[in-house]
Simulated scan of single mutants.
Amino acid sequence: MGTWDVGPFDNDTAADFSYRVDEAPEGEKAEVLRTAFRLVTEVGEEELDADLAVEAIASAALVAARCPGGEPVTAYGPKEPLGVLPEELRPAAVAALDRVLTEPSELLELWEESDGEEWKAGVLKLRGVLAGS
Score class of each variant (00 low, 15 high):
residue 92 A to G: 14
residue 26 E to T: 13
residue 106 E to W: 01
residue 17 F to H: 09
residue 100 V to N: 00
residue 58 A to I: 07
residue 5 D to E: 14
residue 128 G to L: 07
residue 93 A to R: 05
residue 103 E to C: 03
residue 79 K to D: 13
residue 44 G to N: 07
residue 120 K to D: 00
residue 84 V to H: 15
residue 123 V to R: 00
residue 59 S to H: 04
residue 112 E to G: 01
residue 58 A to S: 09
residue 6 V to P: 03
residue 22 D to F: 03
residue 93 A to C: 08
residue 125 K to L: 13
residue 28 E to D: 15
residue 129 V to C: 07
residue 74 T to H: 08
residue 78 P to I: 06
residue 62 L to R: 05
residue 106 E to C: 00
residue 2 G to C: 15
residue 101 L to R: 02
residue 107 L to N: 01
residue 93 A to N: 05
residue 128 G to I: 04
residue 133 S to T: 15
residue 99 R to I: 00
residue 99 R to Q: 03
residue 80 E to W: 09
residue 33 L to W: 04
residue 123 V to C: 00
residue 100 V to G: 00
residue 67 C to N: 06
residue 22 D to T: 09
residue 102 T to A: 06
residue 26 E to W: 12
residue 32 V to A: 09
residue 55 E to W: 06
residue 104 P to W: 02
residue 81 P to L: 09
residue 101 L to K: 00
residue 67 C to E: 15
residue 28 E to N: 12
residue 2 G to P: 15
residue 110 L to W: 00
residue 38 R to H: 14
residue 88 E to S: 14
residue 45 E to G: 11
residue 97 L to E: 06
residue 33 L to P: 03
residue 1 M to C: 12
residue 98 D to R: 05
residue 87 E to L: 09
residue 104 P to V: 03
residue 42 E to A: 13
residue 39 L to I: 10
residue 32 V to R: 05
residue 16 D to S: 13
residue 42 E to S: 13
residue 12 D to C: 10
residue 101 L to F: 01
residue 9 F to G: 04
residue 98 D to G: 05
residue 77 G to L: 06
residue 28 E to A: 15
residue 110 L to R: 01
residue 1 M to S: 12
residue 116 G to H: 01
residue 125 K to H: 15
residue 40 V to D: 02
residue 70 G to C: 04
residue 40 V to N: 02
